[in-house]
Amino acid sequence: MNKEFKPRITSFLCKWCSYTGADLAGTSRLQYSTSIIPLQVMCSSRVDPVFLLKAYLSGSDGVLLGGCHPGDCHYETGNYHTRRRFALVKEVFESLGLESERLKLSWISASEGPKFARVANEYTEEIRKLGENPTRKSIFL
């Protein structure tokens, strides 16, 4: 395993919970993986499956989608829809024999700074073990 390999993890985080959780991790001076590339979205349900696919096919080694806990979405039911769509993308990956581990969904609330740091670190480690996404180099996609 290449020790130098630093994963790039495109992370879609909802404004009201997960992004705020990431902010809290920062203001609490918790150390978390610099592999995380945060992108703020208004709600996890704003993330069309095509966003996840685009990130994956453009060479992100991991794609993280963060939202409020079920029941806590600021648009009431957004994240329930997110969960169904995410299940769909995973199933498409599995049926096509692609590495579905490169996709991760996590519920992180605004007060869960430590959870955000933990998820970021653990997922980075998982992806580091998995290695570079072969889509990074492939030009035929």
């Binding site: 499956p49 095509v50 685009k54 096919l57 096509l96 990074r136 492939s138 030009i139």
Partner: peptide, 21 residues
């Protein structure tokens, strides 16, 4: 990043996108 690019781009995105949609 890649040094070359397939044109038109996003062949796989189109098919995988349709598969999920």
């Amino acid at each position: 990043r890649k040094g070359a690019l397939r044109l038109p781009p996003d062949t796989m995105l189109f098919h995988m996108g349709r598969l999920t949609h």
